[in-house]
Design a binder for these strands. Sequence first.
DNA 1: CTGAAAGCGCTTACAG
DNA 2: CTGAAAGCGCTTACAG
Lengths: 339, 339
Amino acid sequence: MATIKDVAEQAGVSITTVSRVLNNKVKGYMREETGQKVRKVVKELGYIPDPRARSLRGLESGVIGVILPEGINPFYQELAHAITEVCYKERYGLLLCSSENDVKRELSYIKLLQNQKVDGIIISTDHLSAEVINELIKKGTPIVLVDEDVPEANAPAIFANNYQGACLATQYLIDLGHRTMAFIKGPMRALSCRERYKGYCDTLLKSGLKVEEALIEEGGMTYKSGYKTMKSLLQDRDDQFTAIFCSDDFMALGAMRAIQDEGKRIPDDYSIVGFDNVYVSSMSNPGLTTVAQPINQIAGRAFRAIKDWPKRGLTKKRRHQYLNTKLIVRESCRVLEHN
Amino acid sequence: MATIKDVAEQAGVSITTVSRVLNNKVKGYMREETGQKVRKVVKELGYIPDPRARSLRGLESGVIGVILPEGINPFYQELAHAITEVCYKERYGLLLCSSENDVKRELSYIKLLQNQKVDGIIISTDHLSAEVINELIKKGTPIVLVDEDVPEANAPAIFANNYQGACLATQYLIDLGHRTMAFIKGPMRALSCRERYKGYCDTLLKSGLKVEEALIEEGGMTYKSGYKTMKSLLQDRDDQFTAIFCSDDFMALGAMRAIQDEGKRIPDDYSIVGFDNVYVSSMSNPGLTTVAQPINQIAGRAFRAIKDWPKRGLTKKRRHQYLNTKLIVRESCRVLEHN
DNA sequence: CTGAAAGCGCTTACAG
DNA sequence: CTGAAAGCGCTTACAG
């Protein structure tokens, strides 16, 4: 690997000069000719400054860290992939961490990332305290929240507009003619789930429908929990609803399977809508109608938030960005005729 | 962040001494007492040596790179996750790269990883040439191949035993009573696909059955291609086979859907087996019987191969490790009675 | 048994 | 307009 010294020698200048042209600290101070000469040698040698050496001097390391809650969850995998894409385009490295919903592990990863002097951290967590995050920011590590909020944390935060998405789904079912719909919600600890729940309730009420407590169950955002929850709904109240809205695709997929295992059909007997539009939701049978999160936008903005982090000025005011979702209509819902 | 200087001051010794106890260059040369004192301060300050500074001096950076072919493909996502897990346990960072099957991008990532001075690279590729890889190794970057082979590359390589897996699946269908089974193979460019194909053929022949060219089609390892391929098989030769073996789960899932769309049932009308045991294969309806790759083992061994890379001795002889697969029986196959 | 000094590859005041 | 020198946080010969 060529070093700055090699370039300096070849170009017949000092390493200081090389460094200057590399960092564009040149304006008006350097002969055009010198710059050209250096740039030429840089190209010839395929020289790239060592990011470790640069970051030792307090500059960027060219790497960001991403901490996601679950390694096997396709939604987070897709989010990770979206972030990978923007990093690639921006020629950044991406240090991927999966906390497996364990605070200890989150903390341990944060330490690792600090040690590696990443230029910033993108994190989705509902376990970390605001103190930890604010401390981190004070110490100079840019950190941006995605997908899930940490109240009181003074970091920029970027999510899908979960409330709007839930309204979209619920309204869609209402427009189709459904009047009674079950809701399998996610853990109320998570803000995103609370918002989806709220969207469901508000939309029902707005249309003059009742929110039936008996038709609302809480699941654990997994295929299995969706399956089990649906089974019990079918056992106790199978004739009290014609549609189901699930707080995520996996529960929806599990619920579909439960319905089909009971010998009922989708959408003939029950209509169902999911949330997230994970890759596999298009692969169910029938294809699952769902609410798509703007994953690429989230990734892009999160990255920008880190790159545009105020150099060493005051900590900017915390900013929330809610990005709109989109309804993806497939085949899991039907029009309900009233007679 | 505490530095080695802080520790030295607090402990009342030189930074040399601190460095020595940190790196265990101590044996017989240092007073037990000094070591204790230093360790105590290290602990108090929560001091961790800066990996960038260490690696500048030629030591480990504590980060490895992983280059996978497709960011959205759940199989690779699960592999990435498995590697994440071992890295976490070993307190390593993981720089994740997704080449999207593009050589240019692969090369660009390799450059990035070299620049970041990773301790090694785990890569799955069928685009890279052996030259590039051997060059890399010669230059001192440990590199290990997973999942897919690069013939002539002199790197350790770790894969699932695809041949054995295909035999397992085919034999299973034969044992169930099937005598005619279609095969949707993957691109013959990939060694893994060729091995699966070979396993299918050999097992058939071994049982005295014929390999029917007309029942073999090539798909692109995607849900869509599985769907399309199956559709055409059903149109032309629906009565010529009772089972289908697919070179991966996504094609199998697509094929299932195609079968069901034609009004046929699984496993009543057709039995089907996939390959990979991706997370979603348990979520199909019916659950897909498939061949599980030993993903955790692959991840573990790949990591070890990097950690145990011969320090600066001769390049070790290239070693292939084939790890056995396992049949995961779910509900997509049935016994075929003969009369 | 321990420390002062050189050096890894850079950047950035400081000087000229 | 350009360069010599200090320094980022470490490790490792070399000396004592």
